[in-house]
């Protein structure tokens, strides 16, 4: 499967699994625990026999011992469709050169797609830029990761698009790869609605090392998405900038987690495979 320059990343995340944070609805057989109980060999619980149950599911040994008829139940597994929502606004193309936020976002999207696909989950991508939204529906077929890679590589960050609208057509699991500098308030609301509807939400907050430490040169800091936003950054304002940005990130993390969103902050200079593992770290299954 040709995936361009992402071969090493895909090799590094092979075998990594991205378990669901919740029990998923019963559906196609997959790797995630389903809300329903099935007839798998693995034991989950006993239920009294009801008229209409398949007699083959009776536990005859228990019947012999207790003279009571119980049906043996086992946990079911289902797939979890995943959509990677990638922020391709102009602020993602920072800084010039490597590493930068857009490059990290691409690598994380492809890495997460490979992990989801490796777990048998359908995976798709929605990339939102100033030129509009480009969408690939979640699929499980072979080659979907390469398709996602080609789709992402063909786009360039631009404009100041809104991400919240793209959440309406997302799969049950959505991972938003963004720098949270756009329509964050609307995005947070949309994520909360998605969770209420039974979905899972991840926000991978990508920050640049150059944003955390802009350097010592006095400059007129200009927002690439809003040219009127110009602030002089120099020695007297540098500490205030650091504090304000840190407070913003802390508030973003607190608010999203309070909404039930899985929040992870990733720097653009962090190894992508390590970041993918950190994002998909197995949680406790919530019932």
């Amino acid at each position: 499967m040709p995936v361009g320059p992402y071969g090493a990343l895909l090799d590094a995340v092979r075998g990594v699994r991205w378990p669901a944070r919740r029990l998923v609805a019963q559906g196609a057989s997959g790797a995630h625990h389903a809300r329903s109980r099935g007839v798998a060999p693995e034991f989950a619980e006993y239920r009294p026999y009801r008229q209409g149950d398949d007699p083959k599911r009776l536990d005859w040994k228990l019947l012999a011992r207790s003279d009571k008829a119980f049906v043996r139940l086992a946990p079911d597994h289902a797939v979890l469709g995943t959509t990677l929502l990638v922020d391709a606004s102009a602020s993602m193309a920072f800084p010039e050169g490597e590493p930068n936020k857009w490059l990290q976002a691409k690598r994380l999207a492809i890495g997460l797609a490979a992990v989801a696909h490796g777990g048998g989950d359908p995976v798709g991508v929605t990339i939102v830029s100033g030129a509009g939204a480009r969408r690939l529906e979640p699929r499980t077929r072979a080659g979907v990761v390469a398709d996602i890679a080609r789709t992402i590589d063909a786009l360039r960050p631009s404009g100041a698009p809104t991400l919240a609208d793209a959440l309406a057509t997302s799969a049950p699991r959505v991972a938003v790869l963004t720098d949270c500098l756009g329509d964050f308030v609307e995005l947070r609301r949309a994520l909360a609605r998605h969770i209420v509807r039974g979905g899972e939400a991840w926000v991978v907050h990508i920050v640049s090392a150059a944003e955390l430490e802009p350097g010592d040169e006095a400059m007129l800091a200009t927002d690439p998405e809003d040219a009127s936003q110009q602030r002089p950054l120099f020695a007297a304002t540098r500490e205030g900038y650091r504090e304000a940005f840190a407070a913003f990130r802390a508030e973003v993390a607190r608010g999203l987690r309070a909404d039930g969103v899985q929040y992870v902050e990733v720097r653009d200079d962090e190894p992508s495979d390590a970041a993918v593992r950190r994002i998909v770290r197995p949680p406790e299954v919530m019932r």
Partner: peptide, 25 residues
């Protein structure tokens, strides 16, 4: 001072541009 792109410019405290020129190293 030279204009440089910084997506997080909104977090820079507002200040007088002339002060930047005089006090900049």
């Amino acid at each position: 001072p030279p204009a440089r792109p910084l997506p997080t410019a909104r977090f820079v405290p507002e200040s007088d541009l002339r002060a930047v020129s005089r006090t900049s190293r």
